[in-house]
Amino acid sequence: MSAQTDFRDRQFLAVIGDEDSVTGLLLAGIGHVTPPPDNQKNFLVVDNKTDNAAIEAAFDKFSTERKDIAIILINQHVADRIRHRIDTYTAAFPTVLEIPSKDHPYDPEKDSVLRRIRRLFGE
């Protein structure tokens, strides 16, 4: 619960997803690039060419390194590629939210949080 001390600084959303999801969310205005010289983006476009290590690196950066991110949105099919990382991620901040993508409809069975809920109620 030590996370409660720093959540007030967290004000951005981050997104890891396919081009369409990222474009849409950026249109909504969540995109943020930190001032130079860092030029850190809070979004990552994943396509077939992106390798899993890059996704993991981005996930690590958004989830542990950066202290200004409150919510990480990640496409479910991308989350599947680093499923072990998502499932072992238990911190409350930043929250990881699996979202559907255009070409991959949402499957509640895979969602790590929904699975935790099921486990809690022993369903």
């Binding site: 474009t23 205005g29 995109g31 943020h32």
Partner: peptide
């Protein structure tokens, strides 16, 4: 998409 990604600068939508 590309243009959007490149022109994103400051988050309008925050929490």
């Amino acid at each position: 998409g590309y243009q959007i990604q490149e022109s994103a600068k400051s988050a309008r939508f925050r929490v």
